[in-house]
Design a protein around this nucleic acid. Structure first.
Lengths: 255, 255
DNA sequence: CGGTACGTTGACAAGTTTCAAGGCCAGTGG
DNA sequence: CCACTGGCCTTGAAACTTGTCAACGTACCG
């Protein structure tokens, strides 16, 4: 039963019938994907990209709130967000949620599973979510056969480590305003990388999620956003945030 | 000039004359190393370990305060601590030091360099330090030829990522006492892993280093240690700390 | 239309930083 | 041998930031 479900859930390029091949192939082709300049293929040769395509599966769409990865489950694949966004979190012994991070299109999900061979955090969709999936066995083979792919995975691991360490020291040393500023600047640059507006941000996460990510209370997040608004640095309307003075926000971030 | 210096600084097994071969070979042999149960070879087959040995160089001893890795320099190697200990830190725009972590014997140093291809933090010896060194070119070849080695490097990257993420969420949510408790428990388990006492800890770092690692002020570190002492949980004599009630300290850590 | 989840705001409490003073210890030089 | 110095650590009191608790506002949905 469970395996049936999994089998129908993930579809690989060769498994489908050929009738709508041209459209669906595009859909599963990294070369034709809108994200290919910021995703794994960006660092690969055309030949390597072709091999990668053959290993990638596409997920069905997950509804907001649904889990992409369950904490504690053996690591079976890496994911890359294609549409939508997700958060990953772990739970404390008290049952408190600790938000590790947010995942936007083009970003890889699940790397921390390499440590123990099983995932340590739950990854849930914040809005309807579609991902590309590389099963672990194929990933191993790609790392074996494509040195460029292996280097890219190692690079992504190193970059994630760097990011996590920087965040960790940042949270230790900076006040609420600095943390929120960093969060906004970070989000802004990730959106810009995708070719979206760097100043008009539509948040997919709640104030509580932001707070739990930055080690604050939701009241504090709300207060800081209100303060930034009062100072004329941002415009806030529920989950829509417009950076009115990006430079003013950037100087709050002591990197 | 600079290259000369580097060449004389690192000696590989085959480069030395054969006269004192037996002692020096043991010195450079992973099989004969006291740390081999907790170091890279622990996950490798005897054959793989032999190949690894051929790629490892040994550093001369660095004095306390000397740098093993300079922030900003291109990544040229990975290191594993053999004797002594080190801290790694980065500097903020204001020149403040942010301590990313401490490195004990058997632990790998430099992984974060994979992200950008250059090291993002300075690594300095806290006491006389000796390391094993794997030059990047050889590391690449080992990952190519030894799947077990590649998996081990990927595993270490994943584990470091997991550790950094956990620390980051921890610093966000926990008060000074909890942070110090976590620091002590973590250090204790890493010492125990090496076969040393889990309760008698000789710190190699100053209160300031601890504070800068945990996002506290040195006064707060001092106060918390005094409080733990007053409560009968630890004994403190300058940099010597004895855990009198490890269980009581462990319950302060909400994982 | 009322319920529910989410967000904002205020007042007070709690914990940490800041500022300041002093203790301890090892190394140095008279 | 002792005084002196500098680095490191400890302790106290006041200031400040954030958390806590509570009330209220808002938007969405059946």
């Amino acid at each position: 039963m469970e395996t049936m479900k999994l089998e129908t859930r993930w579809r690989t390029r060769g498994q489908r019938d050929g009738i709508r091949a041209s459209t669906t192939d595009i859909e599963l082709s990294c070369r034709g994907c809108a994200l290919n300049r910021i995703c794994l293929p960006a660092q690969l040769s055309p030949d390597e990209t072709r091999v990668l395509e053959g290993a990638v599966e596409r997920s069905r769409e997950l509804a907001a709130g649904a889990s992409l990865i369950h904490a504690g489950m053996p690591m079976q694949a890496l994911y890359v967000v294609k549409n939508g966004s997700a958060k990953s979190y772990s739970l404390t012994a008290n049952g408190d949620e600790r938000v590790r991070g947010f995942h936007l299109p083009g970003e890889i999900v699940g790397l921390e599973g390499f440590g123990a061979g099983c995932h340590t955090c739950e990854v849930v969709a914040l809005e309807p979510l579609r991902c590309c999936r590389i099963p672990l066995a194929r990933l191993e083979r790609l790392m074996e056969t494509l040195p460029g792919f292996r280097r890219e995975i190692v690079r992504l691991l190193g970059q994630s480590l760097e990011d996590a360490q920087r965040l960790s020291t940042y949270l230790g040393t900076t006040d609420a305003k600095g943390r929120i500023a960093r969060f906004l600047v970070d989000l802004s640059s990730r959106l810009e990388r995708r070719g979206l507006s760097a100043t008009q941000i539509s948040l997919s996460m709640s104030r509580t999620d932001i707070a739990r990510h930055l080690g604050l209370r939701l009241e504090t997040v709300s207060r800081v956003l209100s303060a930034l608004k009062r100072e004329g640095n941002i415009e806030v309307k529920a989950r829509y945030i417009k950076l009115l003075r990006p430079e003013a926000i950037a100087v709050l971030v002591v990197q």
